[in-house]
Design a protein around this nucleic acid. Sequence first.
RNA 1: GGCUGUGUGGCAGAGUGGUUAUGCUGCGGUCUGCAAAACCGUUUACGCCGGUUCGAUUCCGACCACAGCCUCCA
Length: 440
Amino acid sequence: MNLKIYNTLSKEKELFIPLDKNLIKMYVCGPTVYNYAHIGNARPAIVFDVFFRLLKSIYPKVLYVRNITDVDDKINNAAKELNEPISSITNKYTDIYHQDMDSLFVLRPDIEPKVTENIEHIILMIQKILDNGYAYENEKHVLFDVTSFNDYGKLSKRNKEEMLSGARVEVASYKKYPGDFVLWKPSENDDPGWDSPWGYGRPGWHIECSAMVDKFLGQEIDIHGGGQDLIFPHHENEIAQSCCANKNTKYAKYWIHNAYLKMEGEKMSKSLGNIISIKELLDNYDGEVIRLALMSTHYRKPINFGESLLEQSKNILNKLYKNLEYDSNDDTISKDVLSPLLDDLNTPLAISNLQKIKCSKTLLNSANILGLLNRSKDEWFSLNENLSISEEDIKSLIKERDEARKSSDFKRADEIREKLDKNNVVLEDVKGKTTWRAKK
RNA sequence: GGCUGUGUGGCAGAGUGGUUAUGCUGCGGUCUGCAAAACCGUUUACGCCGGUUCGAUUCCGACCACAGCCUCCA
């Protein structure tokens, strides 16, 4: 059973060879909790959830860490705007993020560290980088000295000159070199802050992930994931920090990045007003439908998100649930689902093959590795908040219709069918027996 | 401007140097009192232009279009 994954580092599909096959270590960059998570945020969560499930099915133990960023200037700004304490913002949106992820059937990572709870290790890490001569202190800031690290740019495939030629932002006075980035910065007034060897302040953006990986997973890990936009500068800087703190040339063995999503062909942006939160979407679509929609395109390709994709996903799920006859403890997984997943997580092909499975047991097990078919058939088809009629009324109407049909009063029978249809109830006459289900 | 990536039938989306996945939708049919479900059938696609080849959607080159990144955005 060979797993192949595309590694951003080599720009090639590689055979996955774990550092230790008894313990797989995976880290994914998590959310900054200052607002509702939008649909774009759901993509990496779902992609790496499938990876997590797949790895767990192959290896005895997988340790999955995903951080929560609760120190960030965006959070500070949100707190000021709403005139609320920072902790109430971060707590609120952390809870909402968890709810959203649960609704999408995204498994919780094994460890979900917060920046605020790990400042000590961040300070320790920065100190090591300073001690090793890869950083400097200036105007109350600690900065990473990019020119001191030869491998800088190896992930994003950029050289230092290229990066500078395109720089659009004025260089801060405390930087020796325009490409240098902040490890620690001073805090003033209401800013959250902690005492450190360099004064009262807070960590820069990139150091938290290096510190979390170091603390919870160690110096070297198997997989590091995130959105494509994080390749530069975030992940490039993480490599620099971790390698220089630990005097190690290695950090993450496989770098995996998911592509973006577009809204109905357009990019998602505030000015277009087409940013949609997971929460809003969940009002209209089941979490599994959204999940399937986000898996219907390969993770390294842009996905065109929209109503038609959601409708299509809903139809597929209805069909899959229809084929689900009973639950079971059997653990057979279809080879036609597993092997596409083993080939760089080809979810579209796996989903396509899923629809061809005839055996209900195998269907369920195979779907579960994708995080699908989480409910029973009955549960799925009666799940409908729009059902404006009680089960009792439905049953008595069915009975009335049966009698009408027996006496060939088809006009009345059709009236009842129509009435139920308006209440989102679909009737099916199978083998002389009438069953009902909610219209999805 | 630099770097990276994408371009397949109404839609979604695999894949491949030559035997034209698959799903959804639509349409037609079987079935049904009517429906639903199920099953059957169905419009032969790979951005544009060259090159390599007996043959390219698949390899190579140019072009076009679109997207992302270029210091804190998944």
